[in-house]
Design a protein around this nucleic acid. Structure first.
Lengths: 327, 327
DNA sequence: CCGGTCTCTGAAACCGGTTGCAGAGACCGG
DNA sequence: CCGGTCTCTGCAACCGGTTTCAGAGACCGG
């Protein structure tokens, strides 16, 4: 492996000049710059990251902690984060917390040691804990807001309200909301938004759960649905798929007997019978934005604040006017 | 942040001794060791990884390149890899290739620069390319064998044969195999194994595809199924789910009219109607094993070789004797 | 022609660990 | 009692970059 000293020798300059040619090209005369560049090229020089990290204190690595990867929801997020990291010539250090607060904290601690900053997606730790970590190291949250900590929030609450308005617009008044995991920040926000939006049109929201965000839980929830509800909104795609299956098994037709909508939008939802109305969420963008935010926070360029990413209602065949409704 | 020099001063020894107390405890006298340890404890000393990497040339990071994360198949793999990395106090550097050979190569190159070694899962690059990389850096392949390169292979070929024998045992003779992505090493291996196993009992294998391993492709494949086939094996769970849906839509009953089985076993397969017979694959174990293999390769402890991890047929309700069959 | 500013370059000191080498004692057998 | 080995420790070099500081020339206006 060629070192900077090799390049310097090859170009007939000192290490210092060679280094400057890479880091601060404006500080070195044009012909010298060219000589160094071509020497580097010829030798296939790649700076040693460890050495650079040692002096600069920046490793060029970004930590990313996700609760799970089993849910394909997180896949585009990782992809987006990776793309953004690549753009600044950085790398992605990944950790999977499995929704376990202790594990999450341990991972964060370990990873922080190595990374310039940390992106935590839907973390389960306490506000206090997160605040403490943010004081210590650049931290960007995704899908969770904590005070004025920098965060990228997928605006599913507004989206949920939108979904509700879509349903009330069709004539629904009694709407059920099937909650996600206990203690989920996003779930609480969606529920509140839904309640408010239902209220606007004089309807009522029936809340089920909390439930684990799984297919099975969705299937099981069918029995708990209040008889009068003419529409259901599920916390996520898995619950929606489970509900769809459970409703079919119970002989309840969608959308003739009941309308169904989901908050996130896994591709599977477009392929079911009927395809499910869902809230499209720019997950990849969130990942990318979180990482670029992180480098801003790290360099102090940007004030801390939360960004809300808008979502979009994708209407499909699973929502229709309620049974007794005549237009 | 406390440095080694701080610890040394606090303990009243030289940097060298302090360093040895951490790295080679056997080289330092017991009382000294204790002093250094307690000093380190008191100061909350964590060695600077960059500095260590600079001298030792080992970063303690393991690269992991996966083709995608959208398929939950890879989730336990990452988890296993992470657990194994944690055990050696290492970290996971992740890259997602999106099944793109150029991107895969670029990622591998970039990540190798930083990591002690690389785990590539179901890589799409050419054998030659992979061999070249292995010469350069420790490399462990998962779910792909290339010559004598170290690899962890999920033994889905044997499993597929097992699946075939399960079907022929039920009386099936005309079996369809729905192939996965073009050029997939695992797909080819499964197909050959299936052909051989079908041959054993004088049956015939009808091959469909290659197809993208998606739900939609599965649905679409229903039209291509040969009329005489009484059983189908799908390359993976998504194809199987799609097939199940497509068959239902076409009014073909499972398992009365046709049996269905899948090679991997996403949890969803246990929850469909009917639940689908599938091959259970120890994915998490594969991830963990790959990483521990990698550190062995890196330290030259272990000869290179491939390990095959056994799979297990999970029989569910989607497979039954063929229509005309009488026991 | 001269002092001053400006541009460019190099020597050397770091960053925070690891390790080869040598020296100081302790301990041993003869 | 003495030389030799063995155990433990410290000095200092080193890994491969970055950066401070100072000096060498070029260039400028007066």
């Amino acid at each position: 492996m060629a070192t900077l000293a090799d390049v310097a020798r090859e170009a007939g300059v000192s290490k210092a000049t060679a280094s400057r040619a890479m880091m601060r090209p404006d500080m070195v005369a044009a012909p010298t710059l060219a000589r160094v560049r071509s020497a580097a090229e010829r030798l296939g020089f790649h700076p040693n990251r460890a050495a650079r990290a040692l002096t600069t204190g920046r490793t060029g690595m970004v930590g990313l902690i996700v609760p799970t990867l089993a849910n394909p929801f997180f896949s585009p997020l990782v992809l987006g984060a990776q793309r953004a990291a690549e753009e600044t010539d950085g790398h992605l250090l990944i950790g999977v917390s499995e929704y376990d607060a202790a594990r999450e904290a341990a991972l964060a601690e370990r990873i922080c040691e190595q990374a310039d900053g940390l992106v935590m997606v839907a973390p389960v730790g306490s506000d206090r804990e997160l605040r403490a970590r943010a004081r210590h190291r650049p931290l960007v949250l995704v899908d969770r807001g904590v005070g004025r900590l920098p965060a990228v929030v997928l605006d599913t609450p507004s989206g949920t309200a939108e979904l509700v308005r879509h349903l009330t617009g069709l004539g629904h008044r009694e709407i059920a909301y099937v909650s996600g995991p206990r203690g989920s920040w996003a779930d609480a926000a969606r529920r509140t938004a839904a309640e408010e939006a239902v209220g606007e049109s004089g309807g009522r929201l029936h809340t089920l759960g909390p439930l684990p965000p799984t297919y099975d839980a969705g299937t099981g929830a069918v029995g708990e649905l209040p008889r009068r509800a003419t529409a259901v909104i599920a916390y996520n795609s898995y619950l929606a798929l489970g509900l769809l299956h459970g409703l079919a098994a119970a002989g309840i037709r969608v959308p003739e007997d009941i309308s169904l909508a989901a908050v996130d939008d896994l591709t599977a939802l477009g392929a079911t019978t009927p395809p499910v109305t869902a809230l499209q969420v720019p997950v990849e963008e969130a990942g990318a934005l979180a990482v670029s935010r992180l480098v801003e926070v790290g360099s102090g360029t940007r004030k801390t604040a939360a960004t809300r990413l808008p979502t979009r209602v994708q209407v499909r065949a699973s929502t229709a006017p309620p049974p007794s409704h005549t237009n």
